[in-house]
Structures are given as structure tokens and as C-alpha cells.
Simulated scan of single mutants.
Amino acid sequence: MALAASLERKRLESVHSGKSMSITWKLPQYIVLAASEVFNIIGHLEFFYNQTPDTMRSMCIALSFLTISLGSYLSTLIVAIVSVTTRGGQTGWIPDDLNNGHLDYFFWTLASVTALNFVAYLACAKSYRVKKVLVED
């Protein structure tokens, strides 16, 4: 999200100076986002497969996917909250014409929420105890 915010700031600067910017500048952020999603989902599945009781594996993996869907709903809520910035005749952060808005502020907001989520993750990970897996020879 920080990469997207930085790129959006650069895009807005180029638009306001009358220059155009190639869409290929977006490729690095999409590659980073796709790679993080892939590694995250694989890590979730591996964690739930190894660390949950055998009788609860499928339910825990399903709960993992449920958290991803809840994250999508949370994203919708964040967009709705950010839409408040359009009140009072202001263009807001996400107007119809993105050249007049501040999509970079929105990306920085998402980066901040992600950083807070990471801090919460670290707090949970610190108190986590690994399940001992016995391997039969």
C-alpha cells in the first residue's frame, strides 16, 4: 500500500504538471500485491494444516478463508468511511475523476491499517505456542 501511495502521488504530480505517465508503472505494485497474497494464503493453509487438531482441520481452514472474505467487507467499510471526505462540495479522496482526488491518502490509510494489523499479529504471535508434531518412523 505504501508503494501504491507513493506511485499515486507521483502520478498526481505528473498529471498536474501536464505530463502523462505510463500504466506500466503500476506493474511493480501489482506484482508485490499478488506475491504477498499467494504467500499469505499458502502460509495460512500450512499453519492450519499442521497446528490444528486433526478433527478441526477443515473447519479451521474454512475459517481462514472466512477471514479473507471479512477483510473484503472491511475494505468496503473503509471506502464508505473515506467517502465522507466528499461532503461539503469538496472533491474528496476518491472522486469520479481521480486526477482531482487524493487516492494516495486512501492508500496511506490502508497502509496504516495494515501496520496496525501487523502490530496486533506480532502481539498474538509472541504468545503463541507451537503444537508438537509427532512423526512415526
Rank of each mutant, 00 (worst) to 15 (best):
V15I: 15
V84P: 02
T76N: 12
S36M: 10
L103N: 00
I81M: 03
L12I: 03
F106M: 00
S20W: 11
T67K: 11
E8W: 02
A80D: 10
S64P: 06
M21Y: 04
K131D: 05
S127H: 12
A5S: 02
A5C: 05
I81W: 00
K10E: 14
T55Q: 15
S20D: 15
S58M: 15
K19E: 14
Y105P: 03
K10V: 12
A35R: 07
L116H: 00
L33D: 09
T86W: 04
G18V: 08
R57G: 05
A80Y: 06
L66Y: 12
S69F: 12
G18F: 04
I61G: 03
V15D: 03
L98N: 02
V79K: 03
R9K: 13
S17A: 15
F39T: 09
K126M: 11
F107V: 00
L3A: 12
M56Q: 15
A4T: 06
S83E: 15
D96E: 12
S75R: 08
Y30D: 10
A120V: 06
G71N: 02
I94L: 06
G71P: 00
E13T: 11
F107P: 00
H16G: 12
T109E: 01
L134F: 05
R129D: 11
L27V: 14
R9A: 05
S20Y: 11
G18T: 06
K132R: 11
A5T: 00
L63W: 13
L63H: 12
P53M: 07
V15H: 05
E37A: 14
L74Y: 07
W93N: 01
M1T: 07
A62N: 09
L98C: 01
H44R: 08
F107W: 01
I42R: 13
W108Y: 08
L98F: 03
N100C: 09
S14G: 10
S127R: 13
M56V: 13
S22L: 10
S72W: 06
